[in-house]
Simulated scan of single mutants.
Amino acid sequence: MTMTNEGTKMTRALRGLESDSSSVRLRAALAVGTAPDPRCVDTLVGRCAIEPDFQVREMLTWALTRHASALTLPRLLGELRSELAQARSQALHTLSKIGDGRAWPAITRELMTDADDEVARSAWRAAVVLVPEGEESGLARVLATQLGRGGRETRLSLSRALIALGEAMTPALRAAMSDPRPHVRQHAIATEKLARDPDAGFDFAVEEAKRIVALGTNGQEE
C-alpha cells in the first residue's frame, strides 16, 4: 500500500511539472526534491532545459541536488552538448551546486567562451567551484580572455569569478591591464579595484577604471 501511494505521489508530481501554472510546477519540483526518486532524474533534467520561470528552475536544480550525483552527473554532462542554450546553462548551474569534482573535465574553454552570455556566466561559476587545486592559474588565463565582454551583469559575473580565484588571477589580470582594447583594460582594472576594495562596489570600480584608461595609464601599482 505504501509503495502504491509513493508511486501515485511521484506520478502526480511529474505531471505537475508539465502544468501551465508556474506555482503548480514549483510545488511539483518541491515535492520531487522532498522525496527523491531515481526515476525522476531524467524528467527533472529535461524540464530544466525548457522551464521559463526562474524560481521553478531554481527548485528543479535543488531537487536534482537531492539525488545521488552518480545518477545526476551523467545526465547533466550530456546536457552540456545540447543545442539549447538554456539546457547548457542550467546544467552548468546545477553542476556548480552539486560540486562534484568529476565534472571538471567537462567545463571546457568552449563553454566558458560560449556565444550565449548566460551559458558563459554559468560556466564561469561552475569552473570556479570545480577547478582542482593547482589549476587555478590556467583557469584565470581562460577567464581573462573574456574581459570586456557583454553588459554590466556579465562583466560583474566575470569579475566575481576571477576574484574567487584569489592570487591565481593576478598574472592574467595584470596582463589584461595592458591590452590594446580600452574596454578590456577598463574591465581588468575594475576587477582589480573590486578585489582590493569590495565594499566600494562594482559600479564605483568601473568609473574609476574609465578615468584611469582615459588618462592613458593602466592602473597598476608599483
Rank of each mutant, 00 (worst) to 15 (best):
L77N: 01
V24H: 02
A195R: 14
L73V: 03
I189P: 03
R185T: 09
S178P: 00
T170N: 11
G138C: 08
F54K: 08
F204R: 15
S137A: 15
T108R: 03
E153S: 14
S89D: 12
A168K: 07
T2F: 01
L158E: 03
A103D: 05
L165F: 10
A164K: 10
E192R: 14
L158S: 01
T94A: 01
L95D: 02
E58M: 14
W104I: 05
T4A: 13
R160S: 13
P171H: 08
D37L: 02
L14E: 11
G78A: 10
L147E: 06
S69Y: 13
G134K: 10
D117L: 04
L30F: 12
T65L: 06
V213Q: 10
Q186K: 14
L84G: 09
A172W: 02
R39W: 01
N5I: 14
S82F: 09
N218K: 07
S82C: 12
G78F: 02
A188N: 04
E83V: 12
A123D: 06
I212T: 15
A106P: 01
E133M: 04
A144T: 10
A35D: 12
R196C: 08
T11C: 00
W62G: 00
S82Y: 07
T34I: 02
E192I: 00
A190I: 13
G134S: 07
T11L: 13
L111S: 07
G166E: 10
N218D: 15
L64P: 02
T145A: 11
